[in-house]
Design a protein around this nucleic acid. Sequence first.
DNA 1: CCGGGAAGGTGACTAAGTCACCGTTCCGGG
DNA 2: CCCGGAACGGTGACTTAGTCACCTTCCCGG
Lengths: 219, 219
Amino acid sequence: MADWIEQFPGLSRLDGDLRETLVRQSRVVEVPQGTVIFGPGKAPENLLLLLAGVVRVQQVAENGREIVLYRVHAHESCVLTTACLLAYEDYSAEGIAETDVTAVAIPRSVFDEMIARSADFRRFVFTAYSRRITDLFMVIEEIAFRRLDLRLAAKLLERKDAAGDVLLTHHQLATELGTAREVVSRQLQEFIRRGWVTAGRGRVHVTDAEALGEFAHSA
Amino acid sequence: MADWIEQFPGLSRLDGDLRETLVRQSRVVEVPQGTVIFGPGKAPENLLLLLAGVVRVQQVAENGREIVLYRVHAHESCVLTTACLLAYEDYSAEGIAETDVTAVAIPRSVFDEMIARSADFRRFVFTAYSRRITDLFMVIEEIAFRRLDLRLAAKLLERKDAAGDVLLTHHQLATELGTAREVVSRQLQEFIRRGWVTAGRGRVHVTDAEALGEFAHSA
DNA sequence: CCGGGAAGGTGACTAAGTCACCGTTCCGGG
DNA sequence: CCCGGAACGGTGACTTAGTCACCTTCCCGG
């Protein structure tokens, strides 16, 4: 079963030989929800290409506070881990399977060989890097310069499902934004007061996405 | 003149053939202080390896506020630019020669060839990536979770010269920390009041580095 | 020597984060 | 079925940080 390679635009152009190398030397793994894929003192052994599911990468401070850095979705790769895997290692970010995850695991040695042999693979890897680094830049810009209420509004819109529900606790929303629970609670109350959302235990329901969106983009 | 290669620990082990390729196809450039090396709408064309000087990489927000992300020093490389150079491009970070800079410029094509042919070069590049990404993680952790007065104290110690002088304006210190000038001014007044520093136009003099250091590491 | 820009000081205000504590809800074991 | 603990969320009082408007001082070039 090697069809997975077609799911990665950057890899589908690999020619027969390389493609076979890649497919033969990697394996498909299943990772249950909640698994810590990598973290402090737990260096990743493989480059992961996600076939299904979501991996959340977050930073944990000594004082216990957390912030979500980015997510890896299906058909993307966990490239930043490869960097930190190939080099010196004492960073405090961790990757967690946010859902059940199906992924292709490419061992370090194969990763290195592919980098050496395929310009397409190199492009794939560096493109993935670029995307992650851009994500990090955006996180920095957001937490340094944008108002929390605007960020919360945007986050609710980003994470609501088709029915308009955001199935996160206030604490989880705070982690998404790198702030404290109480701050989220109070901001949500303001949104409720304005009639943009309703609240329930562990859920926020977006009732007026349009107003929320307009607010998020104002100022 | 190819001795520069010896200055890069990760490159000095390249064997004769590769080494010659690298040396022949790259050139040494001089960049005057203040030059914008890359930035919005100004993609870098080369991988830079610094021989002398410092490059400051910073993010600029629409509202005009800035934050310093990291610095590239002598014997390091501007790797993140290669990623963003090889891939999609709309990030708002910019790199500025903070001093006069001497650097080796390696064209994109040579970079790619070296990556393909040399495991040592790959290690060099990915190690450099790792360091930068770690820097970014630390920036995020700092601005999200650490108190500003502690960060300012640490920054003064980090950037003081041998005589204890920090030759930066309040505005520049604010940019270092991603905050506003007034906030820096007020914190500095508190440090002055405590007798840890003295101030002058465009300079802060650290008089009690020990107390400042103890403060920076408290809490 | 004077005019303008950079530097920085200040008060009043708003936004954000912290701390301590509360009640409520949920869920699993006894 | 009920109890107890943990997760969830609300709240007041406070501190820290950021914003806005405006001021003075200093420096440098014309």
